[in-house]
Simulated scan of single mutants.
Amino acid sequence: MQTLESLNQTLQTHDAVMLYFSAPTCNVCHALKPKLTEAIMDNFPSFVIENIDISETPEIASHFSVFAIPTVLIFFQGREFLRKSRHMSVGEVIEDIRRPYNLMLA
């Protein structure tokens, strides 16, 4: 099980991190997650992806001010760059992070 400390360590040691917040009862979360994960890994191989089940670790969701699911947080060099909740498409997430990713990591 993840802890806030382990997530903070991941954010400090990797240049590109995606946090994916979901819950077992969220059907949209389960439909979106494999598509988004595959698209991120295909387009941005340096990304580290962490999946957070808010039903198991509500304190992590609270720490990151996540109150709706699914929520995606994108971090570059430890700083939050992008936050998407509920209604998002895989294409829009990919396009939103393409330029900064390429500038920092290409």
Rank of each mutant, 00 (worst) to 15 (best):
T25L: 14
R86F: 07
G78N: 10
A23T: 15
V17K: 03
T37L: 07
Y101C: 01
R79E: 04
F81K: 03
S55V: 13
L73V: 10
L36F: 10
F44Q: 02
R99H: 02
H63T: 11
H63S: 07
H14T: 04
F64H: 04
L7T: 04
V90M: 02
S55D: 11
I94N: 03
H63F: 12
E5Q: 14
E56M: 09
P70N: 14
P100T: 12
M104I: 02
E56F: 05
R98K: 12
S55A: 13
K35W: 01
S22V: 12
E56L: 13
N102H: 03
F64A: 06
G78K: 04
F81N: 01
D53N: 15
K35N: 09
T3R: 00
M18P: 13
K84N: 05
A31Y: 13
L103K: 01
S65W: 02
T25I: 15
S55N: 08
H14A: 14
E38L: 14
P45S: 11
T13N: 14
C26Q: 11
Q9D: 09
E5M: 11
P34V: 07
R86P: 04
S6M: 10
S22L: 15
I40Y: 02
E59A: 12
V72Y: 06
S6W: 05
A68I: 08
S89G: 10
P100C: 08
A39G: 05
S22P: 10
P100F: 07
E59N: 14
P70W: 13
V66G: 12
N51L: 14
F44M: 08
T3M: 05
S6D: 09
L11H: 05
Q9Y: 07
T57H: 15
G78T: 08
G78L: 10
A39Q: 04
Q9I: 06
P34R: 13
Q9L: 11
Y101P: 01
P58F: 05
A39N: 05
F64V: 08
L103Q: 05
Q12G: 10
I40Q: 01
L82D: 00
T37P: 05
F76K: 06
V17T: 11
I97Y: 02
M88T: 06
H87C: 06
P58T: 03
